[in-house]
Structures are given as C-alpha cells and as structure tokens.
Design a protein around this nucleic acid. Structure first.
Lengths: 203, 203
DNA sequence: AGAGTTTGTGTACCACGTAAGCTTACGTGG
DNA sequence: CCACGTAAGCTTACGTGGTACACAAACTCT
C-alpha cells in the first residue's frame, strides 16, 4: 500500500505483480461475470496457483476493491473538464457512465465497494477547479459532484441490473430500450445540473 | 408467483410459507449481515432443515430478490403522496430512504436486484396520479420518479457503504457525518425536483 | 387400510476462500 | 563454485455454502 519492502537483496524474483492480478481479474469479470472472478480463476489466467495471489493481495475482497479503484481511474483518464462547472460535472457524468456501460459486470461492484477517496480526489481536481473558479465553496462542490456521481451509478445499476440468479445471459436490449435509457440519462442529468445551478446562482 | 397449484387434496400440510422464509431472511440480514443469510441459517431460524426451503423457493437468489421486493413494498406502506407531484416525489424519496437506512445491510441488495416492475408500479400509483393530474406524460413521470429513486439508492449506498472485506463493524458514524449526509440528501433532492420542475413547467 | 400426494429430511458433492508448511529461484559471502 | 538466506510460488487440506437426490412423514380420499 505505502512503501514497497526495501526490495531486500536476494529472494526469488516476482513473476507476478498486483497490477497484473487486477488486470486479469477485470478481464475475467468482463468476459464471464463476477462469479468467474475466483482466486483459482485469476490464478489460472496468469498461469499461477491460486495461493500465489496471496503474496500480493491480502484476500479476494481486496482484489474487488482494487478493480473498483482501477476502473474509476480509467474512467477519468485524459479527462478534460470544460470551461464552466456545469460542463465539468456533465462531462464527468458522461465519462463515468461510459466506463460503467463498458464494464457492465463491474457496476454492482462499484455500487458495493466505495471508491477510495484519497485516490479519487486528485482525479476530480479538474472538476473541483471549475467550482472554485466560480467562487463556490468546497463543501457545496462536493455535494454537487457526489450527487451527480450517485445518480450516474444508480442509473447504470438500473440499466444493466439483472437478477444475479437468472442464468439467461439477458437478451441484448433492443434499440428502443437503449433509447429510453439514453433519454432518461440526459434528461435526469440536465435536471440535476439545472437544479444545482439555480441554487448556486441565487436570485 | 401467479396462482397457487390447485391445492390438490391430500399431502403433508405445509409447516412453512414463502412469507415466513422471507421474513426470517430479513431478520437475519438486519441482525448479522448478508453473509449470515445462508440457507442453513434461515432454516435454523425457522426450526427446519436447509433443504426444506427449496420446497418454497427455487434457490437463494430468489430469496434475496424477494427480500428486495418485500422491503420496497414496506417502504411505501401507508404512503400518502401530497397534493402536488413535487410533494409526491419528495415524500417518495424520504420514505424510500428511511427504509434503506432502517435496513443498512439490505442496501447492496436493493442495488443489485432490481425491484420487480409489476409489483412496484401499483405501489407508486399515488405518485403517478399527481403527475397525470398536472397533465404530465406517463413517460416523463417515470423518468422523474426513476431519477429520484436512483438518486436515493445511490445516496444510501454512499452513506452505508462499507467494503465487505473489513470485518470491523465500522464505527458508528459521528453526528457530524450524519449531518453531512442529511444536508447532502435534501440539497440534492431539492436540486433534482427543482430541475425537473423547470423542465416540466417550461417558461 | 391403502393409494396418492405433498412437504420436510439426511446425505453427499462440488466449488470456493484461505491457513500452513514446503519447494524453487534468486542474490550474496565464503 | 558452493552453501546460505530470502522472497515467491506450490501442494495439500480444512471449513463453509449452495444444492441434487432419494427417502421418510403427514395428510386426504376411496
């Protein structure tokens, strides 16, 4: 987590990194769903025994938590907040949502495992900047950003949510459904941004 | 689900109902968390073997799905939408949230298992009425209600979300944190309702 | 009483997470 | 060149959870 051990001289050279483990786990998750993300499964994918993973990761939950943070970070990779804070939150919402729809099986994970605040804040620095530039308090900005984030996540849950029990891979949603979700998403997002705009620009 | 089998004459009288199973499962969930909701655990609580549950329920996932629907229904028991549609959605949000905070361990479940639409719509009839009374299209009303629902659920996830791995029961949140979530909740909810109000009352 | 029917049970299997101890593959100092 | 120490990976094994299967029990109707 913090400093790697002094890389003391000697010892068998690592054949595995934490990053590879997380990458393999995400691949498995995307291809076969959450139930396929098992220690044995990840190990097999890396040509390694299940127990070897424990040299790099304390347990399975830590892997799932790492997936969440990795995906959240990729969602904001190369992120350009626009000129105003309304642009910034809107683009954040779009980028976040794109990532969620790209990794449907990960959505329940992002709902369950909180994104690490320490690592998320730097990623959102650009967004926060547009708020301070508009003379908005940090407290208020966080409420706006979190509200939007929470809306996006909840919306994605509704869109990709399939009862984990139904083995049927769920028929690919028709274009009508896709359209509905798209309309719903932008309509709701606009409403939220508009509503906060009204509050933050009183009078 | 639909009609019970003709209750054919004869046969051992049931000692167990699906309702009891769901009730026991919710009790277990509230008292000991999701991991405690096992077939054996539920059976023990009802003085019955684990396998007996399968006479009433196809599998564990079905129980979890039933918990979701039951809790959602209780959230709206005795629900009074106010005079206007803005009252209606706001009260819906508050009632939904109260239920979620009363059952913190259930929040991840409500995020993961979609509420059954067929049974949810009647519960929301009162809310929908205020929209139609205001001359708002059904499509638009659903977008508003769902947006609010999704916001409430996402907010609750953020509030009660604890990495499933940390065995520490999580320190009871200080009153400062509680206050923050309360302010966040109402602020965000107001923004959403205001934003939609602007859209639905154009000009 | 016996046949038919439905509900609850006992046993067993397999997959998963992971604890413990062993083996392997390196660097270093003799 | 060879022990020796060390870190990484492996083997084995245990406990727990979901659930398939075949059987026992409890009741109704003839």
């Amino acid at each position: 987590m913090s400093t790697k051990p002094p890389r003391g001289r000697g010892g068998r050279p690592p054949q595995l990194t934490t990053e590879q483990i997380v990458t393999a786990a995400i691949a498995l998750l995307d291809e076969e769903g959450l139930d396929a993300v098992t220690m044995r499964g990840i190990g097999a994918r890396l040509g390694v025994a299940a127990m070897s993973l424990y040299r790099h990761v304390p347990n399975r939950d830590a892997i799932l938590a790492a997936i969440v943070n990795r995906l959240f970070a990729t969602a904001l990779a190369g992120f350009d907040p626009g000129p105003t804070w309304t642009d910034a939150v809107t683009r954040f919402a779009v980028a976040y949502r794109r990532m969620l729809l790209d990794h449907p099986h990960a959505v329940p994970l992002l709902a369950t495992y909180p994104v690490d605040v320490e690592s998320a804040l730097p990623l959102l620095a650009g967004v926060l900047d547009r708020f301070t530039a508009a003379g908005i308090e940090q407290d208020e900005s966080l409420i706006v950003i979190q509200s939007v984030g929470v809306y996006v996540l909840g919306h994605a849950l509704a869109q990709v949510g399939t009862p984990p029990g139904s083995d049927a891979p769920a028929p690919p949603p028709g274009p009508a459904a896709l359209d509905f979700y798209e309309r719903w998403f932008t309509t709701g997002l606009d409403a939220i941004v508009t509503g906060f705009g009204q509050r933050l620009r009183p009078q």
